[in-house]
Amino acid sequence: MREQQEDDQLTGALAQAASMLRAEPVPRAGWREALLEAVASDEIDQMPLHRWSVRPAAAIAACAACVIAGAALSYGVLRGPAGAPAPGVAASSVRNGDASLPVRFALEAPGAVHVSIVGDFNGWNPAGLPLHRMPDGRTWEVEVGLTPGRYAYAFVVDGRLARDSSAAESGADDFGVPNSVVLVGGS
């Protein structure tokens, strides 16, 4: 019986405490106004401003230097390692034993797996003259002995025909696909 009374008293005290905690605290009168007043009157610390001043001539010179450095870097990257053959077509002036002139064909095809050359000089046989990948990993090259004359040709890069952008174009042909042209000179 006594225990029951103590329990009832305790429950009442807990309920009162919970009700006090749930109740919204009432701010002191004038507290909000005092706070706003204090904020408004507080001085904002001034961040020190660091202003860069550059003369126009110096800025232009810096830009030019950046452009030149970028161009030089790009040239170096695109050209590949020193000594890599340039794409295009070139011939030696010294004739082979059979009176033909050695003509070097080169193509830049970094991602290619197989490159060959086809043309009037090999009966347009795609398997006839494979190009060899050079040590730079980008350029493919082959040397062909050609007698003086005018030859139409194209590269075959992984089974697809590709023009030699460094050579002259043949213009209209019988099949609507222009060829590249090399003129091999005589002695």
């Binding site: 086809v118 009966g123 347009w124 046989n125 019988d174 099949f175 609507g176 696909v177």
Partner: peptide, 19 residues
């Protein structure tokens, strides 16, 4: 060689014969 060129360029047979 002309016939081979036509085949390589994907031309149809009639066009190759004409060429």
């Amino acid at each position: 060689a002309k016939a081979a060129e036509g085949v390589l360029k994907g031309a149809d047979d009639a066009r190759i014969v004409d060429a």
